[in-house]
């Protein structure tokens, strides 16, 4: 928490304007997965937005952005960045941890600043800076909201994502928050972060359970599917739906005071902005930026929803 605070303060300082006397030109390479799903689409949106902003603030620095459809391409992208652009710093969201660990380690060994985003590498201690979302807090925040607002004995169903460590960490956080609250989890199954799967799963749960008080969909895409099924069954008003990630349609519903969607939990794709900004500050030596920076998941409520709504974002 203290670390978060310190880093944020440094970040705000950096945003104020270009540091005087920092004329040294640096080239910063950014390598992220291509926009193959909603969250990655928003990641691209925020990366481009941040680079544009930084180019204005630091005209002396150069930025190279590469998006990649798979691990192999990402490795080639990284090699090209080092060979042809001579990057001084690298911000990378590894497509997969294992295959990218070696190539990134070689870049780090050559003295280049490396910032790893969200997906950690297989070997610890390679990166200079690690920026990531907090999956445990993602699940915990939703669980805590249920524990705080629902009555004892309330019945909830939980929709998980694609079976993966990310999903497991989220579910563990969710279950830990519910522990001892007296809330009953009726069923838990994989909706695969997919609208259609979530729709059919919710339809079947609605047939199976006469009473459901709340639905946790560990992603907003699934929440959209669940909401459609609830509406079809004519059971709107019986239960609340809490999604996750901060899709703009969901934020909009919260903003307009929809009683079915009271809150949402963030897992911000804009963490790429955090990573790029911190890297620029770190690589220019304006302030110490090495270490880990974990972005906690926040609860989006009708009061603060405006801060989380990005009109132009695809997600």
């Amino acid at each position: 928490m203290t670390k978060t605070l310190i880093a944020t303060t440094a970040l705000v300082g950096a945003l104020v304007g270009p540091m005087s006397g920092m004329a040294l030109a640096e080239t910063i390479g950014v390598s992220i997965p291509a926009a193959t799903h909603g969250w990655a689409g928003a990641l691209n949106f925020h990366a481009e937005r941040t680079i544009e902003r930084l180019k204005e603030v630091y005209p002396e620095h150069e930025f190279v952005l590469a998006t990649t459809p798979d691990s192999a391409t990402q490795v080639s992208d990284l090699e090209d960045m080092v060979a042809t652009r001579g990057i001084d710093a690298l911000v990378v969201l590894p497509f997969e941890s294992e295959p990218l660990t070696g190539p990134i380690q070689r870049i780090a060994d050559s003295g280049t600043w490396v910032t790893v985003v969200d997906r950690g590498l297989a070997v610890e201690g390679i990166e200079t800076l690690y920026v990531a979302g907090d999956n445990d807090s993602f699940g915990r925040t939703a669980g805590q909201y249920f524990a705080d607002t629902l009555d004892e004995g309330a019945k909830v169903v939980a929709m998980r994502g694609i079976p993966s460590t990310v999903d497991n960490e989220r579910v563990e956080g969710f279950e830990a928050a519910l522990d001892g609250s007296g809330i009953e989890v009726l069923a838990m199954d994989h909706g695969n972060w997919n609208r259609d799967t979530a729709f059919t799963l919710m339809q079947d749960w609605l047939s199976r359970f006469p009473e459901i008080d709340a639905v946790w969909a560990a992603d907003d895409d699934m929440a959209v599917g669940a909401l459609a099924a609830i509406e079809q069954a004519g059971r709107t008003g019986e239960m609340i739906v809490v999604g996750g990630a901060g899709m703009k349609e969901m934020v909009d519903r919260i903003r307009s005071g929809d009683s079915t969607v009271p809150v949402d939990v963030t897992y911000p794709p804009s963490m790429i902005s955090t990573a790029i900004e911190m890297t620029v500050v770190g690589v220019t030596g304006a302030a110490p930026m090495s270490g880990e920076f974990i972005i906690a998941s926040e609860l989006i409520t009708p009061e603060n929803a405006d801060d989380f709504y990005f009109e132009d974002s695809p997600y």
């Binding site: 291509a34 926009a35 193959t36 799903h37 689409g41 695809p314």
Partner: peptide, 11 residues
């Protein structure tokens, strides 16, 4: 479809 939707969702 990924390109049309800009990586997100067309609604």
């Amino acid at each position: 479809i990924t390109w049309l939707a800009d990586g997100g969702t067309l609604s």
